[in-house]
């Protein structure tokens, strides 16, 4: 399912976003005020706050750092504007999926075992259960928040998969065409003995389903974005 996470992460660039003109900042009545939190964007009137963006950005940094050779650094650098922007795009996509899920009346959650399994992996990458809270705090996150983010993402991914997979049907003719046009030339190009169709059709079918699924999901997500009312608050 990580590839779909990549799809979600990759769906960015602001295509289809309608940006509100730079809204004059909510008046700061006095000097010396410190902003605790603020609205950063809205998706069909659902607010995304600065704190949500920060949390999502740190989460992305944490997951990337855990997969780095050598593990996460001791002192992660501050978030950049690009990272915040990317995190905002992820949150917008998540909000669209969550709203679609609510409209569809889906209430089934991600299996706790799957969430627990993912948490175990992250803990192992962080150097074990003892290290894990310390590493998470370095990225301004607490373990409960990480678990919640993970569960939410799995929930949405399951929903997206369930929505799109029934439409990703592959026919025998398409499998045969792939075998002829792609597999055989590739095998010959590598000077390999091509396996018979019957042997590889299962694998080819899986590949084609994934490709179709990806296309369908991208189209669906683009459609959700196009139909949505998304506003980004620009502050100077």
């Amino acid at each position: 399912m990580m590839w779909l996470l990549a799809v979600l992460l990759g769906l960015s660039g602001g295509a289809g976003l309608r940006r509100a003109p730079a809204a004059p900042a909510a008046a700061a009545q006095a000097r010396g005020g410190m902003v605790v939190d603020a609205v950063r964007a809205s998706v069909n009137r659902q607010a995304i706050l600065d704190s949500d963006v920060r949390q999502a950005a740190w989460y992305s940094r944490l997951v990337a750092a855990l997969h780095r050779p050598g593990g996460p650094p001791a002192a992660p650098r501050p978030l950049t504007a690009a990272q915040r922007r990317q995190a905002l795009e992820h949150l917008i996509t998540e909000a669209l999926l969550a709203q679609a899920r609510r409209r569809a009346g889906v209430t089934v959650d991600a299996p706790p075992a799957a969430v627990a399994g993912q948490m175990r992996r992250l803990r192992a990458l962080a150097g074990g259960g003892r290290n894990w809270p310390r590493v998470a705090r370095r990225y301004h996150l607490d373990p409960a928040a990480v678990r919640a983010i993970l569960a939410k993402q799995m929930r949405l991914l399951l929903f997206a998969d369930a929505h799109c997979r029934p439409r990703a049907k592959v026919t025998a003719a398409e499998v045969a065409a792939y075998y002829r046009r792609t597999y055989l030339p590739m095998a010959r190009g590598r000077r390999l003995q091509p396996a018979p169709l019957a042997l590889v059709s299962g694998r080819i079918r899986a590949i084609l389903v994934q490709q179709k699924l990806m296309r369908i999901e991208l189209q669906w997500l683009h459609g959700l974005r196009r139909r949505a009312r998304i506003q980004i608050i620009q502050r100077r």
Binding site: A20, A23, A25, A26, A28, A30, G32, G33, M34, V35, V36, D37, A38, V39, S42, R45, Q46, A47, Q231, I233
Partner: peptide
């Protein structure tokens, strides 16, 4: 924000 009456909201703390 859900009231729909606001385009922007900031929570600011003052001493």
């Amino acid at each position: 924000f859900a009231t729909g009456e606001f385009a922007d909201i900031r929570a600011v703390e003052y001493p």
